[in-house]
Nucleic acid binder design. Sequence first.
RNA 1: GCCCCGUUCGUCUAGCGGCCUAGGACGGUUCCUUCUCAAGGAACAAAUCGCCGGUUCGAAUCCGGCACGGGGUACCA
Length: 466
Amino acid sequence: MTAPIRTRIAPSPTGQDLHIGNAYTALINYVVAKKAGGQFIIRIEDTDRTRLVEGSEQRILSSLEWLGIPHAKGPDIGGPYAPYRQSDRLISYRKYAEELVEKGHAYYCFCTSERLEEMRKGQEAEHKPPMYDGLCGTIDPSEAKERITKGERHVIRMRVPDQGVTVFTDLIRGEVSFENALIDDQVILKSDNFPTYHLGVVIDDHEMKITHIIRGEEWISSTPKHILLYQFFGWDIPNIAHVSVLRNPDRSKLSKRKNPVWVSDYKAKGYLPEAILNYLASLAWSYPDGRDVFSVEEMVSVFEIAQLKTSAPIFDVDKLRWMNGEYIRKMDDAGLMGALYAFDPEIPKNDEKMIRILPLVKERMKTLVEFRWLADFFYMKPSGYEKEVNPVLVGIAATALKKIANNWSHEEMEKAIREEAEKSKQKARDVFMDLRVKVTGKTVGPPLLESLEVLGFEETIARLTS
RNA sequence: GCCCCGUUCGUCUAGCGGCCUAGGACGGUUCCUUCUCAAGGAACAAAUCGCCGGUUCGAAUCCGGCACGGGGUACCA
């Protein structure tokens, strides 16, 4: 029997929250594991002590939970290969790095950052790839040991062969190969004793028996270093796949300067987790029968990783909005109400009027925030409007309605509105239009008749519709 | 600069050598429904399949070159 499939995401807690791109990678990892009845694991890569952001780890975990991507193992759950946080695993990294030194696959390096910088400048001037020149690789091991015992500051670098090629087969991109001569003698253990990402992932993935490494394409060029490391240790190389990165509309890598990137941003704007996941999935994968709206469960049942597109998609907020609207309209009233209460605590609970408003607003809203915009107009106090409700217009409408109630024909009504409009120097068409409120340039708000209904003008409506 | 990845409507995609006069979705436009908006329904516009060569009876689909876009090139991840 083959080993159970184990996938993972390894976010670093250096941002405000879970990046939407990481959410995408997490989704794919989750689906792959789930489909095979395996496990999806979270490991926190916090080896860069200088960029740590307080509370980030916790927010990453709760965003994942909010999205509905459950993990089987993680720093908050534990598991057989715990700890799931690199900073808690420290001792073993140095041991492994030194094992490589003994095998001759790595060496101690005492170069100062000044020398490194100078070297790089020189290489740049000569149009050569900036790489470590291997100076310390020639130091006699016993001499190196001596300098270390004397307390000299040092790092450990991997010794990359200068001949041959390193090849790996990407599950979604096929074979990728790199010339060893172009691979740098990467630092694997920093002078603060923390491993760099490269050493860290390889050891952790191996120790945690990760079978499929599925990560963003920005890692493709570091993969040969990892392959080499696996070979140095004599370990089996797991399956590897690189998913494409999400882009800004200008095709650059999705960044917070140009787009909201945190999952919490989307949560705050009233997007539903199911819609976000569905949208993310649709970016690089399409359901075999062509449907656009599908659940994670449905995706799991038919997903094949090789079907993932290799090109990098632009994150299109417009389409996300549409998707979100689809999900909102699919919800039943009670469910939507619950989502709204959770989203906005200021919305009055179990309120009779509120319950009557909901069905009207439901089919008009695309995100949860819009409920306020739509419902406030005739129910709650206006907030966030570009302009206030014009009381004059409300008066005009009231007059017009009175005439409608008198069984006037549409033509007569129209005439009446024109007359009323004339009095207030408004265009007739605008009288009705302006009964709703403009939000960010778009006219929103419920239609007159439905508003009347909610406001309790039953008698008027009855006459209107009879 | 060097290395790597990518390239089908504005955007996300279907397509796996003939079913493609390239299909769907978002967005746009128009129409229907409607007292308005939304939702729903219908339709239209929108892709010389990045370009140039090759293979083939036949190419969006296979091969090569080029162009363009992106990523990487740290004691960041």
